[in-house]
Design a protein around this nucleic acid. Structure first.
Length: 912
RNA sequence: GCGCGCUUAGCUCAGCGGUAGAGCGCUUGCUUCACACGCAAGAAGUCACAGGUUCGAACCCUGUAGCGCGCACCA
């Protein structure tokens, strides 16, 4: 037995244990150990951005994974928690470019050139990348670090190319000129998922155009984007709109640019809503998705007037050319006004697509990109719909289903330098190739000798040019569950740990990542990638705002760990993170966690201070059933309930419930009631009785530490060892590290029979505690300080065990507790009716008869109230008829109890 | 517009058909020999609103309002 220090110092303890766990290889997964008796449990981490730092979101997410992993180990499973990082194309390139600009190493990426910049990013990655993984260790994450992966590891990159080639050969990847979401800041195409709609306050401009065939007749058009007028190639109205039907097929004069007067055809298209604006739409096929489609239907010209940077080009006319698109908007409105064509402008709020990263409105733009038709859409959709893969909380399954039912092809090419280069080469002397490709969507070009699509460059590489683009980050992330396990080789790891058991992630990447991983899993593994998906909430501040750097409301988890300890942070976050709800983070929660750790620490310390038992060890050995007190039996029953409830909560991913149950059990039941009551036995002179109580305490503590271990890995390990539970001693709960100790089993019927524990023991102990509670209430009512030792008299309804009398006396902090069946209380003595009898607080000469009368009257009112409620129910004839017998009995019982209590109170009152 | 979630004590949230709960905060008393990061006692809620189902509704159904989120968008 080693002595537990007086104060709990998380920092030293956390470092000590984490190093030891690493040194002992506790987190290392070995597929060879997997067997029928030792099932596999696996999780792949949602790889954080390689440039990332730990946020509270990561704390939440990874604590959950760690709880799952640690509990799985305790359930005897072989656990693989596979960590790693994501190269996060745009985000990382942005971060590094920014730092290079700041340090003055470059002004624009072109200053460095592709190779040099990519080299810089790699260097940056080597230096700072993976910092977040280090930080996860401070949190206690039990990842198998020997398997850490990065989405741009050589092997992983090879997987990505292989997948691309495979999909290309299957005809699912094609190149084409399409309307894409273009980010003018990052100068790259984005997928639809990367575009975020935001309401923007702007103006709706009404301008008029003259009908060429009917001079003097004008059409009024409403638009939010007058700067695109030079790119217009038509005007559209609804075919059902009688106001304009006579104009269909005619033309209108183009208002801008002023020097270009090519007329625009008026077409009829179903897309137009006659109710909106004037019912007339200007059609800009080059700069709007819907307009593009209208243009296609009516063979309208595509006129690009905005360049990739968002600047107006020369086709926009000399007045607008060179202007930024937003300046051009104002300028265009001015020009219309000057020309007398602007009728009015009104404030208008519309939704504009923003680049998720760039904080800039995206520009729909016609551009040549690579696209993917998703594979296995039906399988992926059905596995969730049919319950073959479960989502927690379940409602995300609907969101998933909806998205899966409305899939658009995925734009997978990015005009960036950091990422997986598209494994396609073009023959240098064939400039016409790209144009041919542009209109080619079917497989006919796959045999094209001008194109080389392969994981390896063409042999005569000097004659070829590789596609300059890289792949969307998510095109590598979607392979994560199997590419990290050695695919395409049929490794033992894949064989034993795929499909993974649980995925823990945020609902914000359900489309980006989860859905795509499911499709990829089916395509290349022929199987779903995970059994269950747990979606966490989003961490917000206590006002409900999202955590953000700019608001400064995002505390650094490492600071919190330093201040309160990792266990405190974990517990605080988990206790306030209910399934499916966002988490309002408040440092108070961490404080609560810290306080709880201290409580646990001191409860263990208290046990140590009782000294060793006869064996010289803390763990006392077998519990003697004959010596169990009512308190012992009660706490064992409570423990049993806690084990059942916590296990069930964890099985259902209700982590905050599990934390709450443990908190209540340990603090309220074990510390507040059991430990205090146990002091009666500990202070008694019976050596055996004392030893038996210590044995019960050890039993309960041993179980409690194990129940807490997934939540509080460090402090539980420290106490487990400090208290000697790691030694192979009775009651044999042990193991060297708590990590591989057995997850507690409920106390079964045999156990209860052996120790003579019945449900009645729960009631017996509660009766005692209720009596204590009543006595404390009397103290309060008569302003007697809780430290003042006084005399109580109990007039019992039945005989009491000596132990129970001891407990009552100690918990009441009574100098004396007289048990007197014939007690004749002086007139006006305060009393309380308890399950054990009437408890008196004799005040010897200090009795205030009036006060006591008032107090009793108040209580009578309360009891009458309750009694009336129950009687009202019972009085209803339908009640007795329809209610289940148990409930009826319960109500009758309640009525009797209240009635008895009322009668007694009246009797007491009558004595005054 | 479609879909989802939320509305319970001052705050954050449990409870989801049978006597309104927790933590924090608040009040009062306690350096009671594990813990003041503590102990004890307490105040505090027409469970958003309106209907309905039921013997019985915070809980089920319908509708309304407010807040939040997702998807789709009309220029």
């Amino acid at each position: 037995m080693s002595e537990i220090p007086k104060t709990y110092e998380p920092q030293a303890i956390e470092e000590k244990w984490y190093s030891k766990w690493l040194a002992d290889g506790c987190f290392t997964a070995d597929p060879a150990r997997v067997s029928a008796k030792r099932p596999a449990y696996s999780i792949v981490i949602p790889p954080p951005n390689v440039t990332g730092v730990l946020t509270l979101g990561h704390v939440l997410n990874n604590t959950i994974q760690d709880i799952l992993a640690r509990r799985a180990r305790m359930l005897g499973k072989e656990v693989l928690w596979l960590p790693g990082t994501d190269h996060a194309g745009i985000a990382t390139q942005n971060v590094v470019e920014k730092s290079l600009r700041k340090s003055g190493e470059m002004k624009h990426r072109d200053d460095l050139g592709r190779e040099a910049l990519v080299e810089k990013i790699w260097a940056w990655k080597e230096e700072y990348g993976g910092r977040i993984l280090q930080q996860l260790r401070a949190l206690g994450a039990s990842c198998d670090w020997s398997r850490t992966r990065f989405t741009m590891d050589p092997e992983y990159s090879k997987c990505v190319s292989r997948i691309f080639v495979d999909l290309y050969n299957k005809g699912l990847i094609y190149r084409g000129k399409r309307m894409v979401n273009w980010c003018p800041a990052s100068l790259t195409a984005l997928s639809d998922e990367e575009v975020e709609m935001r309401p923007v306050n702007g103006l709706l401009y009404y301008f008029k155009v003259e009908v060429v065939e009917e001079p003097g007749t004008f059409l009024t058009i409403a638009t939010t984007r007058p700067e695109t007028i030079p790119g217009d190639s038509g005007v559209a109205v609804s075919p059902r709109d009688s106001r304009y039907s006579h104009l269909i097929g005619k033309h209108v004069r183009r208002p801008l640019p002023l020097e270009n007067q090519t007329p625009l055809p008026v077409v009829a298209d179903d897309h137009i809503d006659p109710e909106f604006g004037t019912g007339v739409l200007k059609v800009t096929p080059a700069h709007d998705k819907a307009d593009y489609e209208i243009g296609q239907r009516h063979s309208l010209e595509i006129i690009e007037v905005i360049d990739p940077r968002g600047i107006m080009n020369e086709l926009a006319g000399k007045d607008l050319a060179g202007l930024d698109r937003f300046e051009a908007r104002k300028k265009a409105a001015e020009l219309l006004r000057d020309a007398g064509l602007l009728e009015r402008e009104e404030p208008y709020q519309n939704n504009v697509g923003y680049s998720e990263r760039g904080q800039v409105p995206i520009e729909p733009r016609l551009s040549e990109q690579w696209f993917l038709k998703y594979p296995n859409v039906e399988e992926a959709r059905n596995i969730v719909a049919d319950g073959g893969m479960r989502f927690f909380p379940e409602r995300w399954a609907k969101v998933y289903d909806h998205w899966m039912g409305n899939l658009q092809d995925w734009c997978i090419s990015r005009q960036l330098w950091w990422g997986h280069r598209i494994p396609v080469w073009y023959r240098k002397n064939d400039p016409a190739l790209r144009d041919r490709m542009a209109s080619d969507e079917n497989t006919s070009s796959r045999a094209d000798s001008s194109l080389h699509v392969s994981t390896e460059p063409p042999p005569d590489s000097e004659n070829w040019e590789q596609d300059p683009d890289v792949l969307d980050t998510w095109f590598s992330s979607w392979l994560w569950p199997f590419a990290t396990m050695g695919w395409p080789k049929k490794t033992e790891t894949l064989g034993k740990f795929y499909p993974t058991t649980d995925l823990v992630t945020g609902p914000d990447i359900i489309f980006f990542w989860v859905a795509r991983m499911i499709m990829a899993g089916f395509e290349w593994m022929g199987e779903k990638p995970f059994e269950n998906v747990y979606f966490t909430g989003i961490i917000r501040d206590k006002q409900g705002r999202k955590m953000s750097k700019s608001l400064g409301n995002s505390p650094d988890p490492l600071d919190l760990i330093g201040k309160y300890g990792a266990d405190a942070l974990r517990f605080g976050v988990m206790r306030s993170a209910p399934l499916g709800q966002d988490v309002l983070f408040d440092e108070k929660n961490v404080e609560l966690g810290r306080n709880f750790c201290t409580k646990l620490w001191n409860a263990a310390r208290f046990r140590q201070m009782q000294g060793s038992g006869p064996d010289g060890f803390t763990t006392e050995g077998e519990i003697n059933p004959l010596l169990l007190t009512s308190d012992d039996k009660w706490i064992l029953l409570r423990l049993d309930t806690a084990i059942r409830e916590v296990s069930l909560a964890l099985d259902e991913y209700r982590f905050s419930d599990a934390a709450q149950i443990l908190y209540r059990f340990f603090w309220s039941e074990y510390c507040d009631w059991y430990l205090e009551a146990a002091k009666a036995a500990l202070n008694s002179d019976g050596v055996e009785r004392k030893a038996n109580t210590l044995a019960v305490m050890d039993f309960v503590l041993g179980h409690t530490l194990r129940l807490f271990h997934p939540f509080l890995p460090f402090i539980t390990e420290e106490l487990w060892n400090g208290m000697g539970f790691n030694l192979d001693l009775p009651p044999k709960q042990g193991g060297e590290t708590i990590q591989t100790s057995r997850w507690p089993q409920p106390l079964d019927d045999d156990f209860k029979a052996h120790y003579g524990i019945t449900p009645e023991d729960d009631l017996a102990a509660r009766a005692k505690y209720e009596t204590v509670f009543a006595g404390r209430g009397l103290r309060r009512d008569f302003n007697i300080a809780s430290n003042k030792r006084i005399r109580f008299v109990l007039q019992p309804v039945s005989e009491l065990a000596a132990h129970d009398i001891d407990v009552l006396r100690i918990l009441l902090n009574a100098e004396h507790l007289d048990i007197d069946p014939a007690y004749a209380a002086p007139k006006g003595t305060p009393r309380a009716l308890t399950p054990l009898g009437t408890l008196f607080l004799p005040l010897e000469g200090l009795i205030d008869v009036e006060a006591e009368k008032q107090r009793i009257s108040k209580e009578i009112a309360k009891v009458e109230d309750e009694l009336a409620k129950v009687r009202a129910k019972l009085a209803n004839p339908a009640f007795a008829e329809k209610v289940p017998p148990v409930v009826l009995e319960d109500h009758r019982q309640r009525e009797a109890t209240w009635a008895e209590k009322l009668a007694h109170l009246h009797q007491v009152l009558a004595q005054f």
